[in-house]
Design a binder for these strands. Structure first.
Lengths: 343, 343
DNA sequence: ACGGATATCCAAAGCGCTTTGGGAGGAATC
DNA sequence: GATTCCTCCCAAAGCGCTTTGGATATCCGT
């Protein structure tokens, strides 16, 4: 049923060579001819056979990722959401995945094997930590790779896509300060991940700039589950001097925090203000919270899709993508932030 | 660096045909010759080029799965754990994945496209519901598939791997009854999924057989998060006549349940007994609970691995796997179950 | 000893694509 | 008018494997 190159060429009265070149954007083909080819492709629904391309070019048309088998990593919504973006884009371009589960201690071997297998054209790396040794390792592997996030303390000469976590939480904290808040708490992600570190840094900078300090007792690090959000907030509220505002690293955490606040009989946006980072999880929208949530927004799925696009574009040598991207999160003010309560 | 068939054949003084046949288990090759070939493979580290195999055979050497983008599905640990098993086994055989994210309403189109793409040799299906329309659809697709779980109400003539949920919870409930419990509650997974339905059925059967009934107020259905476990248990405890024993569909749920019980000042295994289904999540071991948990155990990762094995075996026409497998969960008694408290 | 199995092996033809190495024809150059 | 240079196209050679359609040799029964 499906046509192949040969048939398509015959149909057009052209050689396979020309058709192939027309399709792959080579210059030595007449513009008009190229149009005819493209038209024929549309009409016949021709799709090049990936296996043949693979054999002929030596490229694998697939991207590899090492799936970390570690507590609190693949366990949450965020992983699935990100994966969805990645997969969505990959499938569009007929790219495959090679998911290789691995315990952290075996990661190096796994990466090496994956790179050597010839089964992937590029590797993908995430869950960055400070001084992450994996980027040096990947550099030595002579296979393209792309990092989601950035390390800290490493030289910056590797391709990454990250969001500007520092700015995001700087902006969020500043908003709260402008609203008169003085005691601001932070419910953060795991303390070894760089996004957590940067968010805290951004928040701290805003505080310092306004002559305020960050009380250690008002900072919690944990996996980003509703449960941890709840517990963290409970602890804050039991503090002798509870915060009047809280920053959350995820809407999932915020979900729990809100519950704790409600349970304490406090009013969000009045007694206590709340800002959360919003990864745009389709099942948890900040505008649907009983009190709509002020957020710093940046879509995780979009990041996944973008990473796939860049990776694939790089492999196909199509398009020209920046090596490094830093997305700015959008501060969206809703009802969960209000002026600091009068003492 | 890597040798190919031609070189290997030359090395052995054989034709490519013979070497290929020796490797693929064809009968028309001398046993001794085959041994020589196998030996040479070991020495040279020869690995057939997948792209070439794919082109020559028309097989894709990859399995497709539609990744559901729906609330509460990819959001939990269970998904990651299962995927890990699947991926682990696939990678061993050099198989790829094609993950295709899709909203439930687009699933049919997605499956069709995937099947037609020629990019996958088999499809995989999970999160079964009662009268699940997807199995009829997959049957019509003329591409092998395998179901994790079973539907209910559909004819059973499709390949699946499931655990015997009914028996598992029948056994668990019976144990509790034998211990003298009369009011037993159930914290179950989502009510539309067949494993939940069967677990409840198994429990009900045990109760009925012993002249007991299942109080509707003592049954909760929800996503299997710690949080839901907590809330469900809280509700039970506030009941006029609280249960003396509880069945949980997951150790994650049990985690929350335990918290609620502790908070109420009750003693697990004395005031209230608890049995949970254990998917063998590496980060949540029932034996590490403060009071070690009695469980019905069946490894989710092993199920993933087995499914990959069967799927791959089917594609390669190697080995002979049963079409349908029903794994029996193991009832493991620990300290969380004790005799019913005296009134 | 001879026709016919039987057991082993091989040459060669694909699978569907990319890419090398031209080649024809017209425009530009001298 | 002869030479060079583009422009646009093509034939054919792979990529590394599987598989078809024989070959050759050995062995059997009669």
């Amino acid at each position: 049923m499906a046509v192949n190159l040969k048939q398509l060429a015959e149909l057009l009265g052209l050689s396979q060579t020309t058709v192939s070149r027309a399709l792959n954007g080579y210059p030595e083909v007449n513009a008009e001819t190229r149009q005819r080819v493209l038209q024929a492709v549309r009409e016949t629904g021709y799709r090049p056979n990936r296996a043949a391309q693979r054999l002929a070019t030596g490229r694998a048309f697939s991207i590899g990722m090492v799936m970390p088998i570690a507590p609190g990593i693949d366990s949450d919504v965020h992983f699935g959401e990100f994966l969805a973006g990645l997969a969505e884009e990959a499938v569009k371009h007929d790219f495959h995945f090679v998911l290789n589960p691995s315990a952290p201690e075996d990661e190096e071997v796994t990466f090496r094997r994956l790179a050597a297998s010839g089964n992937v054209d590029a590797l993908f790396l995430a869950y960055m930590r400070a001084n992450d040794p994996r980027i040096a390792m990947l550099k030595s592997l002579s296979i393209p790779f792309l990092v989601h996030g950035r390390s800290i303390g490493e030289s910056r000469d590797y391709p990454f896509l990250d969001i500007d976590n520092t700015s995001a939480f700087y902006d969020a904290a500043r908003l709260l300060i402008q609203l008169g808040h003085q005691r601001i708490a932070l419910i953060n992600g795991p303390d070894y991940l760089t996004f957590s570190i940067r968010r805290q840094k951004g928040m701290l900078r805003a505080l310092t700039e306004h002559g305020l300090t960050l009380d250690e007792a008002l900072v919690e690090h944990s996996l980003m589950t509703d449960e941890h959000g709840y517990r963290s907030m409970q602890r804050f509220l039991q503090h002798a001097q509870p915060p009047t505002a809280v920053l959350c690293s995820s809407t999932v955490l915020a979900l729990g925090a809100v519950r704790a606040i409600n349970q304490a009989g406090l009013k969000i946006g009045e007694d206590i203000s709340l800002i959360a980072h919003d990864d745009v999880l389709p099942m948890l929208k900040p505008e649907n919270f009983s009190v709509p949530l002020t957020t710093t927004r940046s879509s995780l799925r979009a990041a996944g899709a973008r990473i796939a696009t860049r990776l694939i574009g790089g492999i196909l040598k199509r398009g020209d993508y920046p090596e490094q991207e830093l997305w700015r999160a959008e501060l969206i003010v809703r009802a969960s932030t209000g002026p600091a309560p009068q003492k």
